[in-house]
């Protein structure tokens, strides 16, 4: 018997997503799903640090940008495969996260958040003025004969499967992380730093670990994005609206849960498209106002996000159908 009856549901959804390209041929729908998977990957990355370890970063576009620029520059300058560039980018963003995290995690609460905003902005300005990486104009990735080695494909189907694969890796990682001492240590730090320390947890070390995992997945997403659009500039891979969105995704879906960010991404995508279509894009900062408002509403009214509604529903049903205690936790 399955330990968790909902793993059946998850397996089912995954199977549907696997065969979906065979049923839905329209490029448009595949494009939407690719972006949703990417959003879910990024939201999940942010969730490791923000949702599990409770350290709110509003500068996470930085790591996305590092991933995008690493693979792009290594391909343009050294002719390296974007896959190698992706791993270099992940390593680089982990290193940057360690260098920044060490001093930043000594600052508490709101000041930490402000520091991450500042770092995100600094990165944006830096890349905008750095001519070698194309400055404000950005870089085009030249079209090559398509193939897995060069991370370029004709049509959307290959990108669809790669995005789904990245997301699956991130979900599996988070699942095992949550079950292991790392997940428990991260959550202990989120719940009460002094309690965590009294139980022998070196909180700076584990915050840095959470940030490193988070940064690595952001960077992988950055490389994917660069290879998908074949064009990057600071506006597209380092904007603060991206930092805000990746924070909002797990907040909408459910902080500190494995699948919350996936749900959040499915909500986030139409939202951002609607804003782009009806309010005229990111130029007037109206989108930021809406995202900020949503973060506030959820933080106050429903800190557990949509996933919270679902687990409550399940709990309710479980207690109604059988009084026997279930092992269900918030972090499903």
């Amino acid at each position: 018997m399955l330990k968790n009856p909902y793993s059946l549901l998850i397996a089912l959804i995954f199977a549907v997503l696997l065969i979906l390209p065979a049923l839905v041929a329209q490029t448009f729908y595949l494009h939407i799903l690719i972006l949703v998977f990417l959003y879910a990957l990024l939201g999940g990355a942010w969730n490791i640090l923000g949702g599990y370890a409770g350290q709110v970063s509003l500068g996470h576009a930085l790591y996305f940008g590092i991933g995008a620029y690493s693979s792009t520059m290594l391909m343009l300058e050294a002719g390296l495969s974007p896959w190698i560039g992706m791993f270099v980018g992940m390593l680089l963003s982990v290193s940057v996260s360690a260098i920044l995290g060490y001093p930043c995690f000594r600052i508490k609460g709101h000041y930490f958040v402000i520091a991450t905003i500042a770092l995100g902005e600094i990165a944006f300005v830096l890349f905008t003025n750095w001519q070698w990486v194309g400055g404000a104009v950005g870089k085009h990735i030249p079209l090559l004969p398509p193939g897995l080695a060069v991370f370029q494909f004709t049509g959307k189907i290959a990108y669809y499967y790669i995005a789904l694969f990245f997301l699956a890796v991130q979900l599996v990682f988070t699942w095992f992380m949550q079950k292991s001492y790392l997940g428990y240590y991260f959550q202990a730090i989120r719940e009460d730093e002094d309690t965590a320390r009294s139980l022998g947890i070196n909180i700076t070390r584990y915050k840095m670990a959470a940030m490193a995992f988070s940064a690595a997945f952001m960077a992988a997403g950055g490389t994917f994005y660069a290879q998908y659009l074949l064009y990057i500039d600071p506006e597209s891979v380092l904007p603060n609206v991206l930092s805000t969105q990746v924070c909002l995704i797990p907040i909408l879906g459910g902080l500190g849960t494995v699948f919350g960010p996936v749900i959040g991404a499915f909500v986030m995508f139409p939202l951002s498209e609607f804003i782009r279509a009806s309010l005229g894009g990111s130029g007037n900062a109206l989108d930021l106002i809406i995202y900020g408002l949503l973060i506030m509403i959820f933080a106050i009214a429903k800190p557990t996000g949509i996933m919270g509604f679902i687990t409550e529903l399940i709990r309710h049903r479980a207690t109604a159908s059988k009084a026997a205690g279930s092992e269900e936790r918030a972090g499903f």
């Binding site: 428990y184 240590y185 959550q187 202990a188 719940e191 009460d192 002094d194 309690t195 965590a196 320390r197 009294s198 139980l199 022998g200 947890i201 070196n202 909180i203 500190g256 936790r329 918030a330």
Partner: peptide, 30 residues
């Protein structure tokens, strides 16, 4: 504190500090 706990000295807090969103079992598991 983390080093002292690792060395074998543990303490409780007079003003309780549960890891609120974790279950009793998970608190102890940490």
């Amino acid at each position: 504190p983390e080093t002292i706990c690792q060395l074998g000295i543990a303490r409780t807090f007079q003003i309780v500090r549960p890891l609120g969103l974790l279950s009793v079992l998970d608190n102890v598991l940490v």
